[in-house]
């Protein structure tokens, strides 16, 4: 096992399991990295993993995998015992982050591990907005880096000498398809909503809403995910149950909004990495 420590978010775990074949990636993940997962992330994984259609027929295998993940869980009570009962409250204040989600608890866990074990580590998540929110926190506390699932796959590839280039290309491809499929489904449903809103008198005074949906469609059609997080917020402000349900259903798509530092969205990044891998520009010394 390498000495590289990783904290994993729910989306990264779910995506890895979803694109995996015969537990190839998961076995290498367990073998190559020192993993840590917070309780909240495991709960989120259990809650959401079977929303992936391809995993619905593999319930038994997936449940076995989830059972193995318990081994890597660091409980909240451990952190509170070592750092005080107000530990999470303090992180909320310092990070200026109110939500109680997997990203928050993972960042708290990352801080704890980095200081208690005197290491730098990586937190893997595909939630770009959350990445933006915690970037500063990670830098200030010198915790390490926030990376995504594509980076995690590259890391496993680098660490495992039996992980071949063609397998890397295949898994990056599957990861791309995983998100692109979600975007296509989101776009299809959004067009149906648009048709309904544009032809229904109930929405007559909602010019702003129509404009918002129209803008989002144009962005999704061209895989331009910049600022879609803001469009999501605006959609939620309309306070319509159909729109709320739509946003919740396609949360993963809204997470593709790239960080303010990067103009490159996640899908483009995967495509770029695939090209590099195909040209054999990813050098493994060992």
């Amino acid at each position: 096992m390498s000495k590289i420590n990783c904290v994993l978010d729910a989306c990264s775990i779910i995506n890895l399991i979803s694109i995996d074949e015969d537990d190839f990636l998961i076995k290498k993940l367990f073998k190559c990295l020192k993993l840590s997962i917070c309780e909240k992330v495991l709960k989120e994984v259990k809650c959401n993993i079977f929303k992936k259609e391809n995993l619905q027929t593999k319930k038994k295998e997936v449940d076995t995998l989830l059972g193995q993940l318990y081994h890597y869980v660091v409980s909240d009570s451990t952190l509170e015992k070592d750092c005080g009962k107000d530990f999470f409250e303090r992180i909320h204040k310092i990070a200026n982050y109110k939500k109680e989600n997997g990203e928050f608890y993972s960042s708290a866990l990352a801080l704890y591990l980095s200081q208690y074990e005197e290491i730098k580590l990586f937190f893997h998540t595909d939630d770009s907005p959350a990445k933006n929110e915690f970037q500063d926190f990670f830098i200030t506390h010198q915790i390490g880096g926030i990376e995504d699932t594509a980076d995690l796959i590259l890391l496993i590839y680098r660490l495992d000498d039996k992980f071949l280039n063609k397998e890397l290309i295949k898994f990056l491809d599957s990861l791309f398809a995983e998100y692109a499929r979600e975007v296509a489904a989101c776009l299809k449903e959004l067009r149906e909503i648009s048709s309904f809103v544009n032809s229904n008198a109930k929405f007559r005074k909602k010019g702003n809403l129509k404009n918002l949906i129209h803008k989002l469609i144009i962005k999704l059609e061209s895989h331009d995910f910049s600022h879609i997080h803001e469009l999501k917020r605006d959609l939620l402000e309309v306070n319509d149950p159909i729109l709320k349900g739509f946003v919740q259903k396609y949360e993963a798509v809204f997470m593709l909004d790239p960080s303010s530092q990067s103009k490159n969205n996640f899908l483009n990044k995967i495509r770029t990495l695939q090209k590099k891998a195909k040209k054999e520009n990813i050098y493994k010394i060992i």
Binding site: K170, D173, S174, A177, A180, R181
Partner: peptide, 13 residues
């Protein structure tokens, strides 16, 4: 129908 979705499939598919 919707054959344009071939663009989002994995290479294998």
């Amino acid at each position: 129908d919707e054959f344009e979705d071939i663009a989002i499939l994995s290479s294998s598919n």
